[in-house]
């Protein structure tokens, strides 16, 4: 049985599709026995869904650098 810390770590990586099937199975078994981690996992998955649904955008680091330069020049 994996620890809660390990379970959380796998759960986080799972949100970015970076957990192996073996890890996902370990997480699943842990969650069956641990209510705290089950709740964390549910919320974590919900957060992922909300972020997807919001269709967030972000400026690239390059764009931001350019903005900073222009602001510095003006101020």
């Amino acid at each position: 049985m994996i620890s809660c810390e390990e379970a959380a770590h796998i759960c986080n990586r799972k949100q970015y599709k970076e957990a192996s099937w073996r890890e996902r199975l370990q997480l699943f078994l842990h969650i069956l026995a641990c209510k705290t981690c089950a709740s964390f996992s549910r919320k974590n998955t919900r957060l992922t869904r909300l972020c997807d649904k919001a269709g967030l955008h972000s400026l690239s680091a390059k764009d931001k650098e350019e903005m900073k330069k222009k602001i510095q020049k003006e101020s």
């Binding site: 967030l56 955008h57 972000s58 400026l59 931001k64 903005m67 900073k68 602001i71 510095q72 101020s75």
Partner: peptide, 23 residues
């Protein structure tokens, strides 16, 4: 102003994208 880009750029960008729909 030195902190504007880091703090608000993405927030403002999302606001703008949703209104002009051209990145």
């Amino acid at each position: 102003p030195d902190t504007w880009v880091d703090t608000y750029a993405d927030y403002l960008y999302n606001y703008a994208v949703s209104r002009v729909s051209d990145s």
